[in-house]
Design a protein around this nucleic acid. Structure first.
Length: 446
DNA sequence: ATCGGCTCGCGCAA
DNA sequence: TGCGCGAAGCCGAT
């Protein structure tokens, strides 16, 4: 069979012969452009002369997400629907538990195969294995999110960025390739699909939800990329760790929802000289997060942290904590530390805290909580709830790095933190203009 | 301003 | 078995 994707990007979750239409269950990669799962589904459809439908299932009460995150997602999906319609592909919006809704759709539509994208998160793995038990058609999974498919990059949990970097670099020449043109299917989906967006929005309580200061959708994502390359790429190299400057890519919400492909971003940046630092973060550190979650099912708990880190945190459980805050005090940004409060406020207002501040923010939650377990769960709760790019492997790894030494090394022992790398207000003041950062946040909140 | 030490363990060279 | 080195630092000596 001639399919336009690297076969190593696809895994057979459930085997069997394909007899009937192709259904792509879109989940993590919410875009039409540069989507290996869609490319694969369309390729199969042409090969078999079958129609294609893309289905998205909105799960109820998904992980404490705020209305703002749903708003961002729904707006993006409506654009996906529009774009698919123009290319003879049906888009079906479902809501309910995917474990019920997807098998029902397969039965109702007489689908011959389910294609889906890849996520290393527990909920996704559970959904897929349950669905695989329930249906009798083949299921093929395509990693459309990572440049090097998660299962190809490494066969185990990596120790550090360094060990992972070597493996990724080895595979990049093979996988960092240009995307093929997508060809629309010869046959149209049998029914004219009418999606009820209004009831989807009301079931998510989105009516009153103001949108985040980011325009959603793949067009907006591409615009953001173009603008970043044209105006900010040089700045990034110099200042991306300076929260007082606007030198980040602003792509993370789009990358999280799959509204832009990391591979597209990498291809666009690669052709513009040596931007090693940006590409390292975009590729190595992003894909390392998938590696951690995929190979460590305790990716969001204390017990998933490295041995040396658990030991040193255990040694310091009894240490006196000078400041202890409740979750509500943290959530509302009411601590004694104005810099921390500003970072929290930035997250509340923009749905996106500066990357450098995220480390300091999480480390202080460790310092101000009763135990490392409580600290980790609070950091993850707040991150998942308020960041547009929350509920993502990058978030879990970020919290585990800051609080639990993941992918990091030990440093000089001190109270509470033990040998976990420490960060201080004074250190940040030496590094950048803290007052300017606070000023920016204050202006934003008015 | 700059620099070494802190401290662990992986992975490669030998 | 030894050794170099690491995703974003801190601290104290110079």
């Amino acid at each position: 069979m001639r399919i336009a994707i690297n076969p190593k990007s696809m895994r057979v979750i459930r085997g069997g012969e394909i007899k009937g239409p192709v259904v792509y269950w879109m989940s993590r990669d919410q875009r039409v452009a540069d989507n290996w799962s869609l490319i694969y589904a369309l390729g199969l459809a042409r090969e078999l002369n079958e129609p294609v439908a893309v289905v998205f299932c909105i799960a109820p009460g998904f992980l404490n997400a705020t209305g703002r995150s749903y708003r961002f997602m729904i707006d993006g999906l409506r654009k996906v629907e529009h774009r698919l319609k123009s290319m003879n592909v049906a888009f079906i919006l479902l809501h309910g538990e995917p474990v019920d809704a997807i098998p029902s759709l397969i039965d109702d539509s007489g689908a011959g195969i389910l294609v889906t994208d890849f996520s290393p998160l527990r909920i996704s793995l559970t959904w897929k294995s349950r669905i695989a038990e329930r249906v009798s058609i083949p299921i093929h999974e395509v990693d459309a999110h990572n440049i090097v498919p998660c299962w190809m990059a490494s066969e185990k949990q990596e120790w550090s960025a360094q060990t992972f970097r070597r493996k990724i670099k080895k595979h990049l020449p093979e996988f960092l390739e240009n995307f093929p043109e997508i060809k629309q299917p010869a046959r149209a989906w049998k029914d004219d699909v009418k999606n009820d967006w209004g009831s989807a929005e009301s079931s998510l309580n989105l009516k009153a939800c103001t949108s985040a200061p980011y325009i959603s959708g793949e067009d907006a994502a591409e615009e953001q990329l173009t603008c970043f390359i044209k105006e900010k790429l040089e700045l990034y190299a110099l200042h991306h760790n300076d929260p007082a400057k606007d030198a980040q890519s602003g792509l993370s919400p789009y990358l999280h929802f799959g509204q832009i492909s990391a591979q597209r971003v990498a291809l666009a940046v690669k052709n513009r000289g040596d931007y090693g630092e940006f590409l390292d973060e975009l590729i190595v550190r992003r894909e390392l997060s998938d590696n951690f979650c995929y190979y460590n099912d305790r990716y969001d708990s204390f017990n998933g942290l490295p041995e040396w880190a658990r030991k040193t945190l255990n040694d310091h459980r009894g240490d006196r904590r000078e400041y202890l805050y409740t979750l509500a005090e943290l959530e509302e940004g009411r601590t004694h530390d104005d810099l921390w409060n500003a970072a929290q406020l930035e997250m509340l207002i923009k749905g996106k805290m500066h990357g450098y501040m995220r480390m300091y923010w999480a480390k202080k939650i460790l310092e101000w909580s009763e135990s490392p377990e409580i600290a980790l769960s609070r950091a993850i709760y707040l991150n998942d709830r308020y960041e547009l790019d929350g509920r993502d492997p990058n978030g879990y790894v970020g919290c585990a790095w800051s609080i639990g030494g993941l992918h990091d090394r030990p440093f000089r022992e001190r109270p509470i933190f033990g040998k976990i790398r420490y960060m201080s207000y004074e250190g940040l003041r030496r590094k950048f203009d803290v007052e300017e950062y606070k000023r920016r946040i204050t202006m934003m909140s008015q």
